Simulated scan of single mutants.
Amino acid sequence: MSRTSRRREAPWIQRNARYLIAAIASVGALGTAYLTALKLLGDPASCAAGCGQVLSSPYATVFGLPLTLFGFLAYTSMGLMALAPLVISPDRNRELRQNLENWTWQLLFVGAAAMTVFSAYLMYLLAAEIQAVCPYCITSAVLSVSLLALTLLGRSWDDVGQVMFTGVLVSMVTLVGTLGIYSGINNPVTAETSSVPGEPGDPITTTSGQSEIALAQHLTNIGAKMYGAWWCPHCNDQKQLFGKEAAAQITYIECDPGGQNPQTALCQANSDNVAGYPTWEINGEYYGGTQTLEQLADASGYQGSRDFRN
């Protein structure tokens, strides 16, 4: 029987699995690249509803880098491994191509299994901890499961038992590693807090001038509110712009149930407008992300001195 006949006998899924994996990985890479850009630019509020809340959460950063950046690298690696053997002509170097196919199938399976387990844990965090619906996160989980299915169905595995053993081992290592990475968040050490309600562990180190205090009083008088969470670094950045004295006078709404004096019902009632933290509500309008004091003054109609220090 000729090689052509054997190739025709191969199921459709096996003949096209690598192309499908590369296509799915490309979609995942584009999505995570977009989310990484939003995270690095500090503009999570422009993301879809619920997505901004996820990007602003402590779970969105690993080793000081956006989690989505690691997702982008994972999807890109899967795409490259899927296509790598295809660039080698079987007529010129059949042995090299065969070896590369064998190695990349193993790596594709390991990568897909790890991504699926990690995505499953993120789905748990969405439901139990962050309590938000993120379309991008759910889509990424579906893509990960699809990659795992294609790696299993896209090849005739010689030893299914060995594959299952490898899958269980990879899943255990991934889960233990994930729990270790997030252990500091899931079991936070009690930090010394300042007198400003809802302030995260890092205290406000800047001091307020008369202009900052006057702006804070003006914002409070007109009913302006700042929605945030105790773990949100951008919320702390916002308070640093006001300074310690002025930050104590703004109306701050703590949205995390684990924060100080939480007002989760109010946050949930405004969930369509509060997509990320901080979000300001001023005169019926919502402004997402860290705002400069000049921007807050303009939005609120502040007429006082603008000799801001920070």
Rank of each mutant, 00 (worst) to 15 (best):
R6E: 15
I13D: 03
A17G: 12
A22N: 08
A22T: 13
A29C: 11
G31D: 14
T32D: 11
L35N: 10
T36M: 08
T36A: 01
D43W: 03
D43E: 13
A49E: 15
S57W: 07
S57G: 14
P58H: 01
A60W: 01
T61V: 15
F63N: 11
L65T: 14
L69E: 00
F70N: 00
G71D: 01
G71L: 10
F72R: 04
L83G: 05
A84I: 03
N93V: 04
E95Y: 06
Q98I: 07
Q98W: 00
T104Y: 04
L108T: 02
G111S: 14
A128N: 07
P135A: 03
Y136L: 06
L143I: 06
L150K: 15
D158K: 15
V163P: 02
V168S: 08
V170Y: 05
S171H: 04
L175H: 04
L179F: 13
S183Y: 09
G184P: 08
I185H: 09
N186S: 08
V189W: 09
E192L: 11
E199F: 10
T205G: 12
G209R: 12
G209N: 12
E212Q: 13
T220E: 14
N221V: 09
M226G: 00
W231V: 04
C232K: 01
H234R: 07
N236I: 08
F242G: 06
E245C: 03
A246S: 10
E254N: 06
E254Q: 13
D256R: 00
Q260T: 09
Q268H: 13
D272N: 14
E281W: 10
G288N: 01
G289I: 10
T290Q: 14
T292L: 05
D298Y: 02
A299M: 02
Y302D: 04
G304S: 08
R306N: 02
R306A: 02
F308C: 02
R309V: 09
